[in-house]
Amino acid sequence: MTFAAPAVRFRAVTRHFGPVKAVDGVDLEIAPGEFFSMLGPSGSGKTTCLRLIAGFDQPSSGEIEIFGVASAGVPPYARAVNTVFQDYALFPHMNVLDNVAYGLMVRGVGKRERHAKAAEALALVKLGQHGDRKPVQLSGGQRQRVALARALVNQPRVLLLDEPLGALDLKLREEMQVELKALQRKLGTAFVFVTHDQGEALSMSDRVAVFNEGKIVQVGPPEEIYERPRTEFVARFVGGSNVLPAAVARGLGGPDAPCSLRPEAIALLTGPAPEGQAALSAVIEDAQYHGAARRLLVAVAGAALRLAVSIPAGEGGGLGPGQAVTLGIPLSALWPMEGAR
């Protein structure tokens, strides 16, 4: 094992299920200590990738290395990775402490020592008082923490998280996002985080891989994914960006390519367009108030094009459907993209 070996490396990994290519020629490298998210709609191959790392599934072709060691044929129980399952998969017949101590128990750690370590892990996820409860007696958020403690107590070199926050309500989810990120920073373990929630992926990750139809469409830091999407799919999926056809972008004086345009980059003009902006007439179809922002859906005059516009809630108080507005589009905000998928 070399010092610089990545935590996880995929080389041209493909996984077929019959004629379906769940994972289709994926190459990726995850650095040790990195918070790496796999983002994509359901069926895009992200969970299959996670299962390939965990060893629950084997690639049809290609290679997966974990810390420089080829993982082909290595069963899940012999891998230095642990998983936090989507529905937690806690053992219903064991109390919380025994659940957390399970990994240590099967490795032959003595009862006293493994219970001490499990108690430590429970304290780490702020559940120190709940060791003697059964999983059914816990709330969803607490079960989630137990699942986390159960994985972390084994000191995995890579922690795999399969939509771990999916079943939690919004407030709890936001709290857990902060806690997970803090925990990851503290432990320095590589986290591989599977999610379909772009907000979650953007806010927590060092890097994000966007999956579509079994392939990675784009990998990069959250800012790059959000601001410079490589394809229309990324633009739409990550934060609901507008996609302008090449003809419209060219007409505005922008690049001759399909362009992404973030809703918050568009302004409402009351006078002539300032330097560097193109004016576009449109009619409001819908206006929604979202607290911090006001979201408008507008139909562009003379083009079969609808744009989402996000303006500060303080502006445009009297706007409603049917009203004509002039949009100011900064040319610098038009980001040309390579393709559709």
Partner: peptide
Amino acid sequence: EASEDLGAH
């Protein structure tokens, strides 16, 4: 799967 993942033969 969870049991295998945690290192159980």
